Amino acid sequence: MATTHSRRKRTAGELNEDRILYREGRRRCTTCLTIKPLADYDELPVGHPHARLLLDRRYVQTHDTRCRECKRHAGNARRHKRRLHYTTGDFPSNGMQMLLAEYGAACMKCGRTESIELDHIVPISLGGPHSLSNAQLLCQPCNGSKGNRNSTDYRPYVVWK
């Protein structure tokens, strides 16, 4: 897997040190620069037939050698950034209360009154805005079954445009 994060090119001495560490069952994370056991990496074990690739300088320079913790942190940052990108709109802080007052505290699809959730008619992941004009109240089972597959509007009438 090619890396998506930037890192400096390592010297020959550093690569030799990494080879020695790898033979000892340890590795240096390229992000946090700590030496950790190989169990903290998503890699091949030392005895694996393709593990010798990890000793090749070209492979190490072009492949991701971050520990699981650094990869998880980077994944969380990417998800957060993507979520901020999708959430456009002008949904007010009291928007849920406004919807409950206007339409009542019942699911707009089946009429249940327990576990009511906010649902986006056009899902945010498909480009829908996070606004009152794109919001409806559904119970958790109806909202879960709808997912992000369709843009069905169950509102009896539309108040906000």
Score class of each variant (00 low, 15 high):
residue 81 K to D: 08
residue 31 T to Q: 02
residue 131 S to D: 15
residue 38 L to W: 05
residue 102 E to H: 11
residue 11 T to F: 06
residue 143 N to H: 15
residue 156 P to Y: 10
residue 101 A to E: 03
residue 68 R to S: 14
residue 131 S to E: 10
residue 97 Q to C: 08
residue 21 L to K: 15
residue 141 P to A: 04
residue 39 A to T: 15
residue 97 Q to F: 04
residue 56 D to K: 15
residue 55 L to A: 11
residue 129 P to M: 05
residue 90 D to M: 03
residue 36 K to N: 12
residue 25 G to R: 00
residue 152 T to K: 09
residue 3 T to K: 05
residue 69 E to V: 08
residue 35 I to F: 00
residue 121 I to D: 07
residue 161 K to G: 07
residue 91 F to Y: 15
residue 65 T to R: 14
residue 159 V to C: 05
residue 38 L to M: 04
residue 101 A to S: 09
residue 142 C to N: 13
residue 149 R to V: 09
residue 4 T to N: 05
residue 154 Y to R: 07
residue 30 T to E: 07
residue 140 Q to K: 07
residue 76 N to F: 06
residue 82 R to A: 14
residue 46 V to I: 15
residue 103 Y to R: 08
residue 7 R to I: 15
residue 20 I to P: 03
residue 74 A to S: 11
residue 149 R to I: 07
residue 122 V to L: 14
residue 142 C to F: 02
residue 98 M to N: 10
residue 144 G to T: 13
residue 42 D to H: 02
residue 93 S to Y: 14
residue 143 N to E: 10
residue 76 N to Y: 14
residue 8 R to I: 06
residue 61 Q to A: 11
residue 57 R to Y: 12
residue 47 G to R: 01
residue 45 P to N: 01
residue 65 T to Q: 15
residue 140 Q to Y: 04
residue 26 R to W: 02
residue 50 H to N: 13
residue 138 L to F: 00
residue 132 L to V: 05
residue 5 H to F: 15
residue 103 Y to V: 09
residue 92 P to N: 07
residue 126 L to P: 02
residue 83 R to L: 08
residue 43 E to V: 01
residue 70 C to A: 06
residue 4 T to F: 05
residue 101 A to K: 01
residue 120 H to G: 02
residue 30 T to W: 10
residue 129 P to W: 03
residue 55 L to R: 02
residue 1 M to N: 09
residue 14 E to N: 06
residue 147 G to Y: 04
residue 109 K to Q: 14
residue 75 G to S: 11
residue 113 T to D: 14
residue 129 P to E: 02
